[in-house]
Design a protein around this nucleic acid. Structure first.
Lengths: 202, 202
DNA sequence: TGTATAAGTTTCTCCTGTAAACATGGAGGG
DNA sequence: CCCTCCATGTTTACAGGAGAAACTTATACA
Protein backbone atom coordinates (compact mmCIF):
# COMPACT_ATOMS: atom_id res chain seq x y z
CA UNK A 1 0.00 0.00 0.00
CA UNK A 2 2.54 2.55 1.14
CA UNK A 3 5.14 0.88 -1.04
CA UNK A 4 6.23 2.64 -4.17
CA UNK A 5 6.73 -0.71 -5.88
CA UNK A 6 3.70 -2.78 -5.03
CA UNK A 7 5.39 -6.10 -5.74
CA UNK A 8 9.00 -6.29 -6.66
CA UNK A 9 9.19 -8.26 -9.89
CA UNK A 10 12.08 -10.39 -8.72
CA UNK A 11 11.95 -10.02 -4.95
CA UNK A 12 15.55 -8.99 -4.41
CA UNK A 13 16.78 -11.48 -1.87
CA UNK A 14 14.44 -14.42 -1.71
CA UNK A 15 17.03 -16.76 -0.28
CA UNK A 16 17.42 -14.62 2.81
CA UNK A 17 13.67 -14.10 3.05
CA UNK A 18 12.98 -17.82 2.95
CA UNK A 19 15.54 -18.42 5.66
CA UNK A 20 14.01 -15.72 7.83
CA UNK A 21 10.54 -17.12 7.39
CA UNK A 22 11.73 -20.60 8.20
CA UNK A 23 13.58 -19.37 11.28
CA UNK A 24 10.41 -17.64 12.39
CA UNK A 25 8.35 -20.76 11.97
CA UNK A 26 10.98 -22.78 13.76
CA UNK A 27 10.89 -20.34 16.66
CA UNK A 28 7.10 -20.25 16.74
CA UNK A 29 6.42 -23.97 16.54
CA UNK A 30 9.63 -25.15 18.17
CA UNK A 31 9.90 -27.82 15.55
CA UNK A 32 10.74 -28.14 11.90
CA UNK A 33 7.65 -29.98 10.79
CA UNK A 34 6.79 -27.01 8.61
CA UNK A 35 6.36 -27.67 4.96
CA UNK A 36 8.41 -26.05 2.25
CA UNK A 37 5.23 -24.93 0.56
CA UNK A 38 4.13 -23.18 3.72
CA UNK A 39 7.42 -21.35 3.92
CA UNK A 40 6.98 -20.23 0.33
CA UNK A 41 3.40 -19.20 0.99
CA UNK A 42 4.31 -17.08 3.99
CA UNK A 43 7.13 -15.52 2.09
CA UNK A 44 4.65 -14.61 -0.59
CA UNK A 45 6.12 -16.55 -3.48
CA UNK A 46 5.08 -19.56 -5.47
CA UNK A 47 5.61 -22.95 -3.92
CA UNK A 48 8.31 -23.87 -6.40
CA UNK A 49 10.39 -20.75 -5.96
CA UNK A 50 12.40 -22.12 -3.03
CA UNK A 51 13.87 -24.76 -5.28
CA UNK A 52 15.82 -22.07 -7.07
CA UNK A 53 17.73 -21.56 -3.85
CA UNK A 54 17.68 -24.92 -2.05
CA UNK A 55 18.01 -28.25 -3.77
CA UNK A 56 15.51 -29.76 -1.37
CA UNK A 57 13.90 -29.26 1.98
CA UNK A 58 16.81 -30.74 3.89
CA UNK A 59 19.21 -28.31 2.35
CA UNK A 60 17.19 -25.48 3.84
CA UNK A 61 17.20 -27.23 7.21
CA UNK A 62 20.97 -27.62 7.04
CA UNK A 63 21.33 -23.93 6.31
CA UNK A 64 19.20 -23.10 9.34
CA UNK A 65 21.38 -25.35 11.46
CA UNK A 66 24.52 -23.70 10.14
CA UNK A 67 23.18 -20.30 11.09
CA UNK A 68 22.31 -21.72 14.48
CA UNK A 69 25.87 -22.87 15.10
CA UNK A 70 27.21 -19.49 14.12
CA UNK A 71 24.85 -17.70 16.46
CA UNK A 72 25.62 -20.13 19.24
CA UNK A 73 29.30 -19.54 18.74
CA UNK A 74 28.79 -15.80 18.92
CA UNK A 75 26.79 -16.11 22.12
CA UNK A 76 29.45 -18.26 23.74
CA UNK A 77 32.33 -16.10 22.61
CA UNK A 78 30.60 -13.02 23.86
CA UNK A 79 29.86 -14.62 27.23
CA UNK A 80 33.40 -15.71 28.02
CA UNK A 81 34.69 -12.20 28.46
CA UNK A 82 38.41 -12.04 29.21
CA UNK A 83 37.62 -9.89 32.26
CA UNK A 84 36.42 -12.94 34.09
CA UNK A 85 38.65 -13.89 37.00
CA UNK A 86 39.58 -17.41 35.89
CA UNK A 87 39.49 -19.84 33.04
CA UNK A 88 37.07 -21.86 35.09
CA UNK A 89 34.75 -18.86 35.30
CA UNK A 90 35.06 -18.39 31.56
CA UNK A 91 34.18 -22.01 30.97
CA UNK A 92 31.20 -21.68 33.23
CA UNK A 93 30.06 -18.57 31.40
CA UNK A 94 30.45 -20.10 27.96
CA UNK A 95 28.64 -23.24 29.04
CA UNK A 96 25.77 -21.29 30.50
CA UNK A 97 25.58 -19.21 27.35
CA UNK A 98 25.27 -22.37 25.31
CA UNK A 99 22.54 -23.76 27.52
CA UNK A 100 20.82 -20.38 27.59
CA UNK A 101 20.89 -20.29 23.82
CA UNK A 102 19.33 -23.74 23.71
CA UNK A 103 16.57 -22.69 26.11
CA UNK A 104 15.80 -19.60 24.10
CA UNK A 105 15.87 -21.43 20.77
CA UNK A 106 14.88 -24.98 21.60
CA UNK A 107 13.64 -25.79 18.13
CA UNK A 108 16.73 -24.48 16.44
CA UNK A 109 19.02 -26.16 18.94
CA UNK A 110 17.31 -29.51 18.47
CA UNK A 111 17.54 -29.13 14.72
CA UNK A 112 21.25 -28.36 14.94
CA UNK A 113 21.90 -31.71 16.58
CA UNK A 114 19.26 -33.74 14.81
CA UNK A 115 19.90 -36.19 12.05
CA UNK A 116 17.92 -33.93 9.73
CA UNK A 117 20.91 -31.61 9.78
CA UNK A 118 23.31 -34.23 8.55
CA UNK A 119 26.81 -32.92 9.02
CA UNK A 120 28.36 -35.56 6.82
CA UNK A 121 26.62 -34.11 3.79
CA UNK A 122 27.44 -30.43 4.15
CA UNK A 123 31.05 -29.54 4.96
CA UNK A 124 30.18 -25.97 5.84
CA UNK A 125 27.71 -27.21 8.41
CA UNK A 126 30.27 -29.62 9.75
CA UNK A 127 32.79 -26.81 10.02
CA UNK A 128 30.33 -24.54 11.78
CA UNK A 129 29.71 -27.24 14.38
CA UNK A 130 33.41 -27.89 14.80
CA UNK A 131 34.12 -24.20 15.30
CA UNK A 132 31.66 -24.08 18.14
CA UNK A 133 33.22 -27.14 19.69
CA UNK A 134 36.57 -25.44 19.21
CA UNK A 135 35.56 -22.64 21.54
CA UNK A 136 35.35 -25.00 24.48
CA UNK A 137 38.46 -26.82 23.37
CA UNK A 138 40.38 -23.56 23.30
CA UNK A 139 39.29 -22.79 26.83
CA UNK A 140 40.47 -26.15 28.07
CA UNK A 141 43.85 -25.70 26.43
CA UNK A 142 44.17 -22.31 28.02
CA UNK A 143 43.17 -23.75 31.38
CA UNK A 144 45.81 -26.44 31.15
CA UNK A 145 48.44 -23.92 30.11
CA UNK A 146 47.70 -21.56 32.95
CA UNK A 147 47.73 -24.50 35.35
CA UNK A 148 44.21 -24.16 36.64
CA UNK A 149 43.00 -27.29 34.86
CA UNK A 150 44.40 -30.72 35.58
CA UNK A 151 46.87 -31.94 32.96
CA UNK A 152 44.69 -34.83 31.85
CA UNK A 153 44.55 -35.83 28.20
CA UNK A 154 42.93 -32.81 26.61
CA UNK A 155 40.70 -35.07 24.54
CA UNK A 156 39.13 -36.57 27.64
CA UNK A 157 38.38 -33.17 29.08
CA UNK A 158 37.07 -31.95 25.78
CA UNK A 159 34.74 -34.89 25.35
CA UNK A 160 33.56 -34.56 28.93
CA UNK A 161 33.04 -30.82 28.70
CA UNK A 162 31.25 -30.86 25.39
CA UNK A 163 29.09 -33.79 26.43
CA UNK A 164 28.21 -32.11 29.69
CA UNK A 165 27.21 -28.84 28.12
CA UNK A 166 25.26 -30.43 25.31
CA UNK A 167 23.67 -32.96 27.60
CA UNK A 168 22.52 -30.30 30.04
CA UNK A 169 21.15 -28.23 27.20
CA UNK A 170 19.15 -31.15 25.86
CA UNK A 171 17.83 -32.05 29.27
CA UNK A 172 16.94 -28.45 29.96
CA UNK A 173 14.92 -28.00 26.80
CA UNK A 174 13.22 -31.35 27.39
CA UNK A 175 12.13 -29.97 30.76
CA UNK A 176 13.87 -32.77 32.54
CA UNK A 177 15.62 -30.40 34.89
CA UNK A 178 12.57 -29.02 36.63
CA UNK A 179 13.18 -27.71 40.10
CA UNK A 180 10.91 -30.18 41.81
CA UNK A 181 12.89 -33.02 40.31
CA UNK A 182 16.36 -31.75 40.43
CA UNK A 183 16.60 -28.81 42.77
CA UNK A 184 17.14 -25.14 42.09
CA UNK A 185 19.78 -23.84 39.71
CA UNK A 186 20.74 -27.34 38.67
CA UNK A 187 22.76 -26.18 35.72
CA UNK A 188 25.55 -24.27 37.41
CA UNK A 189 25.54 -26.89 40.13
CA UNK A 190 25.97 -29.68 37.63
CA UNK A 191 28.66 -27.78 35.80
CA UNK A 192 30.49 -27.32 39.07
CA UNK A 193 30.46 -31.05 39.64
CA UNK A 194 32.21 -31.49 36.33
CA UNK A 195 34.58 -28.59 36.87
CA UNK A 196 35.59 -30.03 40.21
CA UNK A 197 36.79 -33.02 38.24
CA UNK A 198 38.54 -30.87 35.69
CA UNK A 199 40.23 -28.26 37.80
CA UNK A 200 43.17 -28.56 40.11
CA UNK A 201 42.38 -26.81 43.34
CA UNK A 202 39.30 -24.87 44.12
CA UNK B 1 2.92 -72.03 0.98
CA UNK B 2 3.92 -74.36 3.79
CA UNK B 3 1.38 -72.67 6.06
CA UNK B 4 -1.78 -74.50 6.88
CA UNK B 5 -3.62 -71.20 6.90
CA UNK B 6 -2.41 -69.32 3.89
CA UNK B 7 -3.38 -65.90 5.27
CA UNK B 8 -4.82 -65.56 8.71
CA UNK B 9 -8.07 -63.65 8.25
CA UNK B 10 -7.39 -61.37 11.17
CA UNK B 11 -3.63 -61.65 11.57
CA UNK B 12 -3.55 -62.42 15.29
CA UNK B 13 -1.29 -59.74 16.67
CA UNK B 14 -0.92 -56.96 14.15
CA UNK B 15 0.03 -54.39 16.73
CA UNK B 16 3.11 -56.31 17.69
CA UNK B 17 3.91 -57.10 14.07
CA UNK B 18 3.76 -53.44 13.10
CA UNK B 19 6.04 -52.52 15.97
CA UNK B 20 8.51 -55.20 14.95
CA UNK B 21 8.51 -54.06 11.35
CA UNK B 22 8.99 -50.46 12.38
CA UNK B 23 11.83 -51.39 14.73
CA UNK B 24 13.44 -53.28 11.87
CA UNK B 25 13.18 -50.34 9.54
CA UNK B 26 14.49 -48.03 12.24
CA UNK B 27 17.49 -50.29 12.73
CA UNK B 28 18.09 -50.65 9.02
CA UNK B 29 17.81 -47.00 8.02
CA UNK B 30 18.94 -45.50 11.32
CA UNK B 31 16.14 -42.98 11.03
CA UNK B 32 12.41 -42.82 11.36
CA UNK B 33 11.65 -41.24 8.02
CA UNK B 34 9.73 -44.37 7.07
CA UNK B 35 6.14 -43.94 6.11
CA UNK B 36 3.28 -45.59 7.91
CA UNK B 37 2.12 -47.02 4.64
CA UNK B 38 5.48 -48.64 4.08
CA UNK B 39 5.31 -50.24 7.49
CA UNK B 40 1.87 -51.59 6.65
CA UNK B 41 3.07 -52.83 3.27
CA UNK B 42 6.01 -54.70 4.73
CA UNK B 43 3.81 -56.18 7.40
CA UNK B 44 1.52 -57.36 4.62
CA UNK B 45 -1.63 -55.47 5.52
CA UNK B 46 -3.56 -52.63 3.99
CA UNK B 47 -2.28 -49.11 4.51
CA UNK B 48 -5.18 -48.21 6.77
CA UNK B 49 -4.84 -51.16 9.10
CA UNK B 50 -2.26 -49.50 11.39
CA UNK B 51 -4.80 -46.86 12.31
CA UNK B 52 -6.76 -49.51 14.18
CA UNK B 53 -3.81 -49.74 16.57
CA UNK B 54 -2.17 -46.32 16.53
CA UNK B 55 -4.07 -43.06 16.37
CA UNK B 56 -1.40 -41.62 14.13
CA UNK B 57 2.16 -42.04 13.04
CA UNK B 58 3.56 -40.26 16.07
CA UNK B 59 1.80 -42.62 18.41
CA UNK B 60 3.69 -45.49 16.84
CA UNK B 61 6.94 -43.55 17.18
CA UNK B 62 6.23 -42.94 20.84
CA UNK B 63 5.63 -46.61 21.36
CA UNK B 64 8.97 -47.41 19.75
CA UNK B 65 10.65 -44.90 22.03
CA UNK B 66 8.99 -46.43 25.06
CA UNK B 67 10.28 -49.84 24.12
CA UNK B 68 13.69 -48.28 23.61
CA UNK B 69 13.75 -46.86 27.13
CA UNK B 70 12.75 -50.18 28.57
CA UNK B 71 15.50 -51.97 26.68
CA UNK B 72 18.02 -49.34 27.66
CA UNK B 73 17.03 -49.70 31.28
CA UNK B 74 17.50 -53.45 31.07
CA UNK B 75 20.92 -53.06 29.51
CA UNK B 76 22.03 -50.64 32.19
CA UNK B 77 20.64 -52.67 35.05
CA UNK B 78 22.29 -55.78 33.74
CA UNK B 79 25.63 -54.00 33.35
CA UNK B 80 25.85 -52.64 36.88
CA UNK B 81 26.30 -56.02 38.48
CA UNK B 82 26.53 -55.88 42.28
CA UNK B 83 29.77 -57.87 42.08
CA UNK B 84 31.58 -54.78 40.90
CA UNK B 85 34.08 -53.49 43.45
CA UNK B 86 32.66 -50.02 43.96
CA UNK B 87 29.72 -47.80 43.29
CA UNK B 88 31.97 -45.81 41.02
CA UNK B 89 32.67 -48.93 38.98
CA UNK B 90 28.97 -49.63 38.81
CA UNK B 91 28.30 -46.12 37.59
CA UNK B 92 30.98 -46.50 34.98
CA UNK B 93 29.51 -49.80 33.82
CA UNK B 94 25.98 -48.47 33.63
CA UNK B 95 27.12 -45.40 31.76
CA UNK B 96 29.08 -47.43 29.26
CA UNK B 97 26.11 -49.73 28.80
CA UNK B 98 23.96 -46.73 27.97
CA UNK B 99 26.46 -45.40 25.48
CA UNK B 100 26.95 -48.86 24.04
CA UNK B 101 23.21 -49.20 23.59
CA UNK B 102 23.14 -45.88 21.77
CA UNK B 103 25.94 -46.96 19.45
CA UNK B 104 24.24 -50.23 18.66
CA UNK B 105 20.83 -48.60 18.14
CA UNK B 106 21.60 -45.08 16.99
CA UNK B 107 18.30 -44.58 15.24
CA UNK B 108 16.28 -45.79 18.16
CA UNK B 109 18.34 -43.81 20.64
CA UNK B 110 17.95 -40.62 18.64
CA UNK B 111 14.22 -41.20 18.38
CA UNK B 112 13.97 -41.71 22.13
CA UNK B 113 15.32 -38.24 22.75
CA UNK B 114 13.83 -36.49 19.76
CA UNK B 115 10.88 -34.17 19.80
CA UNK B 116 8.99 -36.71 17.71
CA UNK B 117 8.74 -38.80 20.84
CA UNK B 118 7.06 -36.10 22.85
CA UNK B 119 7.09 -37.17 26.48
CA UNK B 120 4.58 -34.54 27.51
CA UNK B 121 1.90 -36.30 25.49
CA UNK B 122 2.32 -39.87 26.62
CA UNK B 123 2.64 -40.47 30.35
CA UNK B 124 3.81 -44.03 29.89
CA UNK B 125 6.65 -42.81 27.71
CA UNK B 126 7.48 -40.17 30.26
CA UNK B 127 7.54 -42.79 32.99
CA UNK B 128 9.75 -45.09 30.97
CA UNK B 129 12.25 -42.28 30.51
CA UNK B 130 12.12 -41.38 34.18
CA UNK B 131 12.69 -44.97 35.21
CA UNK B 132 15.86 -45.08 33.18
CA UNK B 133 17.00 -41.82 34.72
CA UNK B 134 16.15 -43.33 38.08
CA UNK B 135 18.75 -46.04 37.62
CA UNK B 136 21.55 -43.50 37.66
CA UNK B 137 19.91 -41.56 40.45
CA UNK B 138 19.76 -44.70 42.55
CA UNK B 139 23.44 -45.30 42.02
CA UNK B 140 24.31 -41.79 43.12
CA UNK B 141 22.25 -42.13 46.26
CA UNK B 142 23.97 -45.38 47.05
CA UNK B 143 27.35 -43.77 46.42
CA UNK B 144 26.59 -40.95 48.80
CA UNK B 145 25.33 -43.36 51.43
CA UNK B 146 28.39 -45.55 51.26
CA UNK B 147 30.57 -42.46 51.40
CA UNK B 148 32.38 -42.94 48.14
CA UNK B 149 30.60 -40.02 46.48
CA UNK B 150 30.90 -36.47 47.70
CA UNK B 151 27.89 -35.27 49.68
CA UNK B 152 26.92 -32.62 47.16
CA UNK B 153 23.28 -31.89 46.44
CA UNK B 154 22.14 -35.12 44.84
CA UNK B 155 20.26 -33.17 42.20
CA UNK B 156 23.44 -31.56 40.93
CA UNK B 157 25.19 -34.87 40.66
CA UNK B 158 22.17 -36.42 39.01
CA UNK B 159 21.93 -33.68 36.42
CA UNK B 160 25.65 -33.82 35.76
CA UNK B 161 25.70 -37.59 35.50
CA UNK B 162 22.69 -37.91 33.27
CA UNK B 163 23.84 -35.06 31.06
CA UNK B 164 27.29 -36.54 30.77
CA UNK B 165 26.08 -39.98 29.81
CA UNK B 166 23.50 -38.73 27.39
CA UNK B 167 25.84 -36.15 25.94
CA UNK B 168 28.55 -38.69 25.32
CA UNK B 169 26.07 -41.04 23.74
CA UNK B 170 24.86 -38.37 21.35
CA UNK B 171 28.37 -37.32 20.44
CA UNK B 172 29.38 -40.93 19.94
CA UNK B 173 26.57 -41.72 17.53
CA UNK B 174 27.21 -38.47 15.69
CA UNK B 175 30.77 -39.68 15.16
CA UNK B 176 32.11 -36.65 16.93
CA UNK B 177 34.34 -38.73 19.16
CA UNK B 178 36.59 -40.17 16.48
CA UNK B 179 40.01 -41.18 17.67
CA UNK B 180 41.84 -38.72 15.48
CA UNK B 181 39.92 -35.90 17.03
CA UNK B 182 39.62 -36.92 20.58
CA UNK B 183 42.09 -39.66 21.37
CA UNK B 184 41.57 -43.34 22.09
CA UNK B 185 38.91 -44.61 24.44
CA UNK B 186 37.50 -41.13 24.98
CA UNK B 187 34.39 -42.38 26.65
CA UNK B 188 35.78 -43.97 29.80
CA UNK B 189 38.32 -41.16 29.96
CA UNK B 190 35.60 -38.53 29.83
CA UNK B 191 33.54 -40.39 32.38
CA UNK B 192 36.54 -40.49 34.66
CA UNK B 193 36.87 -36.74 34.44
CA UNK B 194 33.34 -36.42 35.69
CA UNK B 195 33.70 -39.13 38.31
CA UNK B 196 36.76 -37.40 39.67
CA UNK B 197 34.48 -34.48 40.35
CA UNK B 198 31.83 -36.68 41.91
CA UNK B 199 33.83 -39.02 44.07
CA UNK B 200 35.64 -38.34 47.26
CA UNK B 201 39.10 -39.85 47.07
CA UNK B 202 40.43 -41.80 44.22
C1' DT C 1 -28.52 -69.55 16.09
C1' DG C 2 -27.81 -64.54 15.66
C1' DT C 3 -25.70 -60.44 16.12
C1' DA C 4 -22.50 -56.73 17.95
C1' DT C 5 -17.83 -55.68 17.48
C1' DA C 6 -12.90 -55.58 16.82
C1' DA C 7 -9.85 -55.80 13.11
C1' DG C 8 -9.09 -55.29 8.09
C1' DT C 9 -9.94 -53.32 3.50
C1' DT C 10 -11.39 -49.89 -0.05
C1' DT C 11 -12.09 -45.53 -1.45
C1' DC C 12 -11.58 -40.69 -1.17
C1' DT C 13 -9.80 -36.04 -0.19
C1' DC C 14 -6.33 -32.92 0.72
C1' DC C 15 -1.58 -31.99 0.94
C1' DT C 16 3.33 -32.45 0.11
C1' DG C 17 7.82 -32.77 -2.44
C1' DT C 18 9.74 -32.25 -6.60
C1' DA C 19 10.31 -32.08 -11.80
C1' DA C 20 9.53 -29.67 -16.16
C1' DA C 21 8.04 -26.24 -19.05
C1' DC C 22 7.17 -21.53 -19.34
C1' DA C 23 7.60 -16.27 -18.18
C1' DT C 24 10.04 -11.99 -17.04
C1' DG C 25 12.93 -8.42 -16.19
C1' DG C 26 17.70 -6.59 -15.55
C1' DA C 27 22.58 -6.81 -17.14
C1' DG C 28 25.86 -6.76 -20.74
C1' DG C 29 27.17 -6.78 -25.81
C1' DG C 30 26.56 -4.72 -30.26
C1' DC D 1 19.67 2.44 -27.43
C1' DC D 2 18.04 -1.99 -28.55
C1' DC D 3 18.36 -7.05 -28.19
C1' DT D 4 19.36 -11.20 -26.28
C1' DC D 5 20.68 -14.25 -22.25
C1' DC D 6 20.12 -15.99 -17.68
C1' DA D 7 18.97 -16.03 -13.01
C1' DT D 8 14.88 -15.99 -10.66
C1' DG D 9 9.94 -16.77 -10.51
C1' DT D 10 5.47 -19.08 -11.85
C1' DT D 11 2.35 -22.71 -13.61
C1' DT D 12 1.27 -27.17 -14.38
C1' DA D 13 1.73 -31.96 -13.50
C1' DC D 14 2.47 -36.15 -11.01
C1' DA D 15 3.52 -39.72 -7.61
C1' DG D 16 3.07 -40.60 -3.14
C1' DG D 17 1.47 -40.02 1.97
C1' DA D 18 -1.71 -38.95 6.03
C1' DG D 19 -5.79 -39.77 7.62
C1' DA D 20 -11.20 -40.07 7.47
C1' DA D 21 -15.26 -42.72 6.28
C1' DA D 22 -17.76 -46.35 4.72
C1' DC D 23 -17.74 -51.13 3.94
C1' DT D 24 -16.51 -56.27 5.12
C1' DT D 25 -15.61 -60.31 7.89
C1' DA D 26 -14.79 -63.53 11.45
C1' DT D 27 -15.37 -64.28 16.28
C1' DA D 28 -17.04 -64.01 20.84
C1' DC D 29 -20.93 -64.08 23.46
C1' DA D 30 -26.00 -63.93 24.42
Amino acid sequence: MSETKDRPYHHGDLRRALIDTALDMLATDQNWAFTLREVARRTGVSHAAPYKHFRDREMLLRELARIGFNRLGEAMTEAMSPDLPSTRAQFMAAAQACIGFACQNPGLYRLMFSSDADKTIDPSLHDAAMNTFGILLGLLEKGQRDGSFRPVAISAQAAAGWAQVHGLAMLAISHQLLEEKVGPAPIPAALDVLLDGMCRSN
